[in-house]
Structures are given as C-alpha cells and as structure tokens.
Design a protein around this nucleic acid. Structure first.
Length: 422
RNA sequence: GUGAGUGUAGCUCAGCUGGCAGAGCACUGGGUUGUGGCCUCAGUGGUCGUGGGUUCAAGUCCCAUCACUCACCCCA
C-alpha cells in the first residue's frame, strides 16, 4: 500500500521552503514597518461564523467548506478564509476597547473543497491583512501601496493592480435593479450559467468568461455609474492618493468579489503568468461585516495574498533561494575523514554552514554530493594533502582553487569566510 | 459538479497498422584523466496505474475503474 497525500493537499519540499520563508518573512517585515501586528487564529471555527460572514449562498459556504461534527455534536468548519475569524477574535477579545484602530495580519493555511488545478489547492495558504476601525480612503490607499511595495520587494514587477468600488447599501440597490433590467433585455444572448445566476447574483455575470456574455456586459451599466455621493467622494479620494503615491492601477468596473461582505473599494493584483488563476492577491472594504458578526459598528478593509501563487511566480522566474552550505568537506581515507569530522563540528560551532558525506566514498562521488547540495566551497584532503599539511580549497562557481594549511584549518576557513572568501 | 489530456525504470520520455520491454539522465563498479564534471566499458533497476474483455498473441484495440494535470465553475 502506497500512501499518498489527500487530493489537493501538497507537501512543501525542502527545496521550496526557502522561497516560502522568503515570502512570509518579507511580508512580516513590511507589514510591521507599516504598523501591522501579527495575530494567530485557530483553524477550526463554528461553521456558522463563516455562513454568517461569507454568506450562506456563496459557493464557499454552500459547497466548499470542510465541515465536521465534533464529539459533542458541534458543527465546526476548517477555515476557508481568515477575515471572519479575525473579526471574531477582535470582538471576543474586545480589542476595540484598547485602541480605536487595529492593523492586523495573519499567515496560515485555508481549506476549500475545490477541484485542484494550477494555482488552486484544497489546502492553500494566505497572508491576510486587515485594518479595522478606519473608514477613510487613506487606509484603502495604504493597503494597496503596501501590497505593491511587498511585491516589488520580492522582485515581482509586471503585476497589475485592478481597482473598483462596489458602493454601499444606498447605491447598490438601484444598481442591481438597473443591472437586472439590462440583463433581462439581453437574456437570450447570455450563456446558460449566467441566465441562471442573473436573478440571484446579477453581479456574477461580470465575471463570466464566455465571449457572448463579455460582449453583453461591455455595454452594461456599471456600479461606478451608480455610486452615491459619499461613495464617489470616497472612491475619488482613493484614486487621487494612489496617483500621488505613484502606484499604477487600472479601474476595472467588472472586478467583483466572491464574498458577500464587500462594500466600496475592492482591488485585486493580477498576473498574466499563472494560467486561469490570475489573482495573486485580492481584497476590499467590508464596512458592514463587523456589525453583522455581532461586534461594534466598525468599518474595515483587508486583503489576502495567495501564497502558493506568489511562490509559483517566483519559481517560474527562477528566483528560488539558494540554501547550500558554505563549505563541503571532502576527505579521502579514514585518517582524513576522522579529522574532517572534527573540523566539521568546530566549523558549525563557529557559525558556518557546512556538511560532509559520512559514508566513505571516492572523490568523484563526494564532489558530486557537494555540488548537489549547492556548496560554495569544497575542502579536499587526501593522503598527499595530509602528508604535505595543506588541503585544497576549491570554489565551486569559479572553479578556482587554493591551498590552505591543515595546521588549524578551522581557524583558516573562518578567517577566509570573514574576508568574504576573498 | 462538468469537460479534455496523461499514466511504461528513481526522473524525462520513446515504443508505428497488436509479435521477446527500450533510450537518455540518475545510481553502483571498472578504465581514462592534471584529485569530481568530459570520454569509455559493464552492472542494478519494470506485475507497462488497476480490473476485466477481444485475440494464437495486448504496453499497443475495447470497456470499466483509480490517480495526476489543465480548463470550466469558483476564488487568493
């Protein structure tokens, strides 16, 4: 019996961990720079929290949640996203009593029962960032400024920021009515899926990829035409700040969110290089959610970064992190091996990353081993070298080599390392 | 949930209209060499995803099933 990982659940292998680590540590570094603090939330919540927060009718809740009943009959769910949990924690711990505005982030796995494909797993990881308590457009702009800065720091240019406003309860009603009217007029041109969803979720039609629907939606009324005065002022301010901050963006009136709780500003960072799953980060404002979940009437905005999508982008661009040892010891013969073994531990104690192959083997095999590990230097010590008292230090990238004294090679190597290997 | 594609050595794959299971890389050992990488000789390694069917004969054709991949859907 060959055991395999559960469908849609993947191992993150040693060769990839450095890249993951870089994404997360870079995120932490930048978010903390901007005043965000980490919060760690549980993986399991009452299923009802998500039903209430995300929306009973969304696909996420109605068919993608991993739900379970615990031994006492409680209905639980593995979190499909982080925002609802963060708000629950905020309310439960009365964080609002401490300071008026909270800027939080969390990193971790999320679970959705979907058919796996490129950039989409059943267990996936998000970096989730939220600002709770500030209604103003500066928070909106700060988040977008920060997220683009994050991607720039990772070396990912070529990403496009899409921005839209979904309006508030005031203006959304009239817009939906008008949109339905428009769709009604063009029913026969829509694909079957859209014909079905136009009554319940007319906004969904904006997302459709069928050419006929795209054509129809080209001339459809957009939310932006229906924004009320406050929403217009808000959205205009966001755009002005972004321009003044020199952030490139496109206003995309077709940009919709899958979760019910979004209001006003929404945004998404997209790439062309990931196939169908082109959003590497997305988010928006959700001013009504806090109250909906039983908390104070408090505005909030946030976004989530899809970690595997970012990692995949970095991998595709060959930007994987090197993780080889500083030096690999290649001794030949028992005497040299025993000495090298001692040197090895001394070097490690001194803070150098080093490795050797404890299985006695020929130089050929050892060099290969060192090369595979990505070692920067190899120290070769055979019979001749022992006799001469000088080992050969070879640089794996330049292929150049030099002799070093075996009198106290540990000290010698540490000295060379401090001189940046010359 | 729907559709398409792929399952042959550890990895990447070839195997035609059915006829003895293959290559490259990797691995092990030898030769050559200026102490590894190039060259060279040999060796290890397979129930051809699984189950059934057609046939004298199936990796190849048919049916079923499982797995993976991509896309729809959905979303980060």
């Amino acid at each position: 019996m060959q055991y395999k990982a559960v469908k849609g659940f993947k191992d993150i292998l040693p060769s990839q961990v450095k890249t993951w680590d870089r994404v997360e540590s870079e995120g932490k570094r930048i978010f903390e720079l901007f005043g965000y603090r980490e919060i760690r939330i549980p993986i399991l919540e009452k299923a009802e929290l998500f039903a209430r927060g995300i929306g009973q009718d969304t696909d996420i809740v109605s068919k993608e949640m991993y739900t379970l009943t615990d031994r006492r009959g409680a209905q639980l769910a593995m979190r499909p996203e982080a925002t609802a949990s963060i708000l629950r924690a905020y309310i439960e711990n009365k964080l609002y009593a401490a300071t008026p505005v909270h800027k939080l982030f969390t990193i971790g796995p999320m679970f959705r029962y979907e058919r796996p494909q490129k950039g989409r797993r059943r267990q996936f990881h998000q970096i989730d960032v939220e600002i709770i308590g500030d209604p103003g457009p500066r928070s909106d702009s700060e988040l977008m400024f920060m997220i683009m800065h994050f991607f720039t720091c990772l070396g990912l240019a070529e990403l496009i920021l899409h921005v839209n406003s979904l309006g508030c309860m005031e203006c959304r009603g009239p817009f939906r009515a008008e949109l339905k009217r428009y769709l009604q007029e063009h029913v026969e041109q829509l694909c079957p899926d859209c014909q079905e969803s136009m009554e319940t979720k007319p906004l969904r039609v904006f997302d459709c990829k069928v050419e006929r629907c795209i054509q129809v939606m080209k001339d459809a009324p957009t939310m932006l035409d229906f924004l009320c005065r406050d929403c217009t002022v808000h959205f205009d301010a966001v755009k002005v700040y972004l321009r003044e901050l020199n952030i490139d963006f496109v206003v995309n009136s077709h940009l919709m969110r899958g979760l019910d709780y979004y209001t006003r500003t929404t945004f998404e960072v997209q790439t062309r290089e990931l196939g169908a799953q082109n959003a590497v980060a997305g988010g928006g404002r959700y001013d009504l959610l806090m109250k909906e979940l039983g908390g104070p009437d408090s505005p909030a905005i946030g976004f989530a970064i899809g970690e595997e999508r970012v990692v995949e982008l970095l991998e595709e661009q060959g930007r994987v992190e090197a993780d080889g040892p500083d030096i690999f010891l290649a001794p030949l013969g028992t005497e040299a091996e025993d000495k090298a073994f001692m040197w090895l531990q001394e070097l490690r104690k001194a803070g150098l990353r080093c490795e050797m192959d404890y299985r006695s083997s020929g130089l050929k095999a050892q060099m290969k081993h060192g090369d595979r590990l990505g070692a920067r230097k190899v120290l070769i010590v055979g019979q001749d070298e022992l006799a001469k008292g000088k080992g050969i230090l070879r640089d794996m990238s330049t292929k150049s080599q030099m002799e070093i004294s075996l009198e106290d090679p540990v000290k010698e190597i540490i000295r060379l390392k401090e001189e940046r290997w010359q």
